[in-house]
Write a protein that binds this DNA or RNA. Structure first.
Length: 434
RNA sequence: GGAGAGGUCGCCUAGUCCGGCCGAGGGCGCAUGAUUGGAAAUCAUGUAUACCGCAAGGUAUCGAGGGUUCGAAUCCCUCCCUCUCCGCCA
């Protein structure tokens, strides 16, 4: 959520900034609601002050035996109350209108974010690794949705039987590979100073609102009958851990990580990435979240990207780093880097991590502040950051495709071997523990 | 799920039966000052948040929401949460 006061005082700039994200924002409704809200508050509070004075006098009048005067005062207060009641009703609707407006306005892109209309205007920052030339190696690369079933480690058909389309079932070394990746990622981040958490997978509406998933993106979420939502990412839980809290500046920045399954409705993505593990309703992810001061948050973002890159490098997967342009930025983000891994089946790089600085946008929604008595009086909103480190399903797809061998087996990257207990996955190879 | 007890200012606690002088007392903690060579101890003062307002100041908040009343931390209702016991269960 943006700062209403800032929006009021910088309407043109905000409008322009949102335009750069292709959001056509008409400030009239906001300005009217904001103006009306403040006027109503002023009026209503003046009346409340009068009411208090009048009301307090009644006790004294009663004691003094001046019953008639007391009754007159009561009548006066009743009249004031009627007036307050109608003002408050108007105030409620003004505030509702204002909240409705503010809750669906996306964050303002950071000054450093490249301006652009959409995906095509994103800026490539750097590449790491070289995609294999399968033609030169003399065989044709298979997509992971062929490799997995062929090795007996992914079963898409039975997943559909058990749930519905866009679910996966892993078997044997496939299931172990999933666990190995999770443990490898979580361990690696822990060693680099991220505190690991284990969180609820269902969150209430307040929590989902804090990160910006509600109210605007409800159709992307699975919902339970008692009003809880399955988390679409651990970012929701990690960020809201400190909702309604005032953090001590001395403890900042906080570096958190968590492995969780993630659940997404994928409404509106019909026909996209229909095959394989790329776009499914349920996938695993190890997530990083940071809480930082405004002074350090952008440097923290660079470090977070490096932490995500470290995973890809250790897994020997070629990737590139993309900086999202204003038009492609997510709702809560002020600046975002995507990591895209090379996928032979797409003959292209495909998003595997997204690292964002949300500045104070989520902190304002969730009320996450910090205190630094040496630097300023009172409290300030923290900056929140989040990044995938990494999406596990897509990582598995990338390993299967990039590490496939002529004989149909898949070589396990060295860093993962201790977690897998085997050096490759071959057809008929059983997932026995050694 | 059943029965009972509770949720007050960072923490502990008073106030709730008998509604106004209660945004709310005390202790601890914390901050500043005095004292001291320095510290401890002691003493003094201060010590929530948000919103409206140029300001003075005002308004709201005693788990949340609603009700009664001129007036609610205090009375009534609903909900949430915590604790104890019982039941059930990985």
């Amino acid at each position: 959520m943006l700062d209403a006061k800032y929006v009021r005082e910088n309407t043109a700039a905000v409008r322009q900034a949102l335009l750069s994200r292709s959001v056509q924002w008409q400030p009239a409704a906001f300005l009217a609601a904001d103006e009306s809200r403040r006027a109503l508050i002023a009026k209503s509070e003046t009346l409340k002050s009068q009411r208090r004075t009048a009301s307090n006098s009644i006790g004294a009048l009663m004691k003094a035996g001046r019953v008639d005067d007391a009754e007159a005062a009561k009548a006066e207060v009743r009249a004031i109350n009627d007036e307050i009641e109608s003002l408050e009703a108007a105030l409620d609707s003004a505030e509702a209108a204002l909240a409705a407006e503010m809750m669906v306005l996306p964050n303002i892109p950071s000054a450093s974010t490249p301006v652009g209309a959409g995906e095509e205007d994103n800026v490539e920052v750097r590449r790491w690794g070289t995609p294999r030339d399968f033609a030169a190696e003399g065989f044709e690369a298979q997509p992971h949705w062929e490799i997995g079933p062929a090795l007996g480690i992914i079963d898409f058909e039975r997943a559909v039987k058990l749930a519905k389309s866009r679910f996966a079932l892993l078997a044997g070394l496939g299931a172990r590979l999933e666990r190995a990746l999770i443990n490898f990622m979580a361990d690696t981040h822990s060693r680099r100073g991220y505190k690991e958490w284990w969180t609820p997978l269902l969150g209430n509406a307040t929590t989902l609102t804090g990160t910006g998933n509600l109210p605007k993106f409800e159709e992307d979420l699975f919902k339970t009958t008692d009003g809880l939502y399955l988390i679409p990412t651990a970012e929701v839980m990690l960020t809201n851990i400190h909702a309604d809290e005032v953090l001590d500046a001395a403890g900042l920045p906080l570096h958190y990580c968590a492995f969780t399954p993630c659940f997404r409705e994928e409404a509106g993505s019909a026909g996209r990435d229909t095959r394989g593990l790329i776009r499914v309703h349920q996938f695993d992810k190890v997530e990083m979240v940071k809480f930082a001061t405004p002074e350090t948050s952008f440097a923290e973002l660079e470090d977070m990207v490096a932490d995500a890159e470290n995973i890809l490098q250790q897994l020997e997967l070629p990737y590139r780093v993309i900086e999202l342009c204003t038009g492609d930025l997510g709702f809560s983000a002020a600046k975002t880097y995507d990591l895209e891994v090379w996928l032979p089946s797409y003959s292209d790089y495909k998003e595997i991590s997204s690292c964002s600085n949300c500045v104070d946008f989520q902190a304002r929604r969730a009320s996450i502040r910090y205190r630094d008595n040496t630097a300023f009086k009172g409290t300030r909103l923290v900056h929140t950051l989040n990044g995938s480190g990494l999406a596990v399903g897509r990582t598995m797809a990338a390993i299967l495709e990039n590490c496939q061998q002529r004989d149909g087996s898949v070589r396990i990257p060295e860093a993962l071997v201790p977690y897998m207990g085997v050096e490759n996955i071959a057809k008929g190879g059983e997932a026995s523990c050694r």
